[in-house]
Design a protein around this nucleic acid. Structure first.
Length: 242
RNA sequence: AGCCGGUGGCCCC
């Protein structure tokens, strides 16, 4: 039944998922943690964050303790709706309930701060992760690196890339795309192309996202011919522009 | 066992 609710949520049929949930209640079936988490996530993805929070309240009333996943979904939902302050409050609430934050939650918050430009806060969260002995993974670094790129701190980025490698992590396609895009937006096309080459040399395939970043970068710098060539390469590689 | 949470381009805004 959780699978069914999950499928409905993924198809965007939140209403049907909720009916099923209500039906469960009427038949005396009790939803479990995963049922609630699935619905919380479903509501959040539709931007219905206050309903999502209500579900959290309901589960508590029913004696089910929200876990890290419940809060992750809820906090991410708030972040995506631009309610970072409330997301932070939820983070505190969560910790108050004795739920130990993990890397995913931190990454969610780091990403949110990066996006609104409070990169300092993102960096503080990074420090806190280290202090708490939570290992950063590639996703966490990508969020940080992206934030630094957006803040124009391309120099700082290097430090984190080194740190990342030192930790034994391997930058992935997304890391490189962030860097390609970051250098493009900074107007440093040479570096951008260098990143692309590195990416390909390390066995990662270019995809349409990375191509689009490069092509728009080139064309915005007036390098129309290069942009055209790149577009050709992209088409030859079998990607359709979108 | 399975089902629920985090990161990339353009476009839209």
């Amino acid at each position: 039944i959780n699978m069914t609710i999950s499928c409905l949520c993924k198809e965007g049929k939140l209403g049907e998922a909720c009916s099923l949930f209500d039906e469960m209640g009427k038949r005396g079936l009790s939803p479990n943690l995963v049922t609630f988490n699935t619905l919380i996530s479903g509501h959040c993805k539709k931007g219905q964050i206050s309903d999502a929070y209500k579900l959290l309240t309901v589960m508590v009333e029913q004696g089910i303790c929200p876990n890290i996943v419940s809060y992750s979904a809820l906090i991410n939902g708030h972040c995506k709706e631009g309610r970072l302050e409330e997301a932070c409050k939820l983070f505190e609430e969560m910790k108050g309930r004795g739920v130990i934050p993990d890397g995913v939650i931190f990454t969610t918050l780091i990403d949110a701060h990066s996006k609104v430009g409070t990169i300092e806060a993102a960096l503080n969260l990074h420090d806190e992760m280290l202090k708490q002995g939570i290992k950063l993974d590639v996703v966490a670094y990508n969020a940080l690196v992206h934030g630094l790129c957006r803040a124009g701190k391309l120099k700082e980025v290097k430090r984190f890339l080194d740190l990342m490698v030192k930790t034994g992590l391997v930058p992935d396609k997304i890391t490189y795309t962030i860097l390609v895009d970051g250098f493009c937006k900074e107007g440093n096309l040479e570096k951008a192309l260098e990143m692309r080459n590195k990416m390909v040399m390390r066995g990662m395939k270019m995809d349409n996202v990375c191509y689009t970043a490069l092509i728009t970068g080139l064309s915005r710098q007036g390098k129309v011919a290069d942009a055209h060539n790149m577009l050709h390469e992209m088409l030859k590689a079998g990607f359709m522009p979108d």
